[in-house]
Write a protein that binds this DNA or RNA. Structure first.
Lengths: 130, 130
DNA sequence: TTATATGCAAATGATTTGCGTAGTC
DNA sequence: GACTACGCAAATCATTTGCATATAA
């Protein structure tokens, strides 16, 4: 839907990119808005959203947590891995045993108390492969 | 905040749990609502949300995609792993090299076209450890 | 010049919450 | 009987979108 569009480097877009490059945290759209607003007090939140979208679509930044903002529930309380279709959002189990040893790799390297991990593959489901 | 509450097994709660156990898909709250509504036509969406919350808090089901419904953005477009604080939601990088070989494990085991994976550790950040 | 981008405000979609009543223990 | 849960509707929070105007190329 945004394919083949000619992008312009506006002041707002440049500043958003610059500010995002300054930090190693992973700000939310609203946090980016707060950062950018110090340099461009009249920028709107909508512009920030639109630019974050455009910039991640052309690969200049990445959007974490995928495009999905609906939560999914599972009666299977065993830890298990999932695969999500990047096109339709379908979420399925993956027949790979969770590797508990990962957690230990991180223990001792991090100040966090490690509780576990989630591994999610990203791909195209059979239907969306075309 | 929901600690020490006495839970009651209401009809609605039982049906929600039963329906969720019937499927191996990972329905959203609204999908659970549609499923349950066939047996309990007068149940409200709010009740479904409340019960999914309660059931996942006491470990009878799990909530995927964590409790976070805000997207995060990152100017670092290299694939890298993250750790999220389960208490405050903080999201940070993890100093572990991504293991591209994972993707190959799944190739050939799955009908999906594998594009990549995301690994997110879950833990308690230094501040929240207490 | 002209299509893309902006600012603003309203719309949307998911989830949460307040409140008065119903049902479980 | 006391306290948890329910149904309903309104509220909230993040995100998206319509529209008239501004601006990069």
């Amino acid at each position: 839907m945004t394919v083949g569009r000619k992008l312009r480097m506006t002041n707002q877009r440049r500043v958003i990119l610059e500010e995002l490059k300054k930090v190693t945290s992973h700000p939310t759209a609203d946090e980016v808005y707060q950062m950018v607003r110090q340099r461009l007090p009249h920028i709107s939140l909508g512009t920030v959203y639109r630019n974050l979208e455009v910039l991640s679509q052309c690969g200049m930044i990445q959007r974490l947590a995928l495009g999905i903002n609906q939560r999914h529930f599972d009666a299977n309380i065993e830890n298990h891995y999932h695969i999500r279709c990047i096109n339709c959002g379908r979420l399925e189990d993956v027949p790979i045993e969770p590797v508990a040893a990962f957690d230990n790799v991180l223990r001792g390297m991090s100040d966090y108390e490690i509780i576990g991990h989630r591994l999610e593959f990203i791909g195209l489901c059979p239907q969306c492969k075309k």
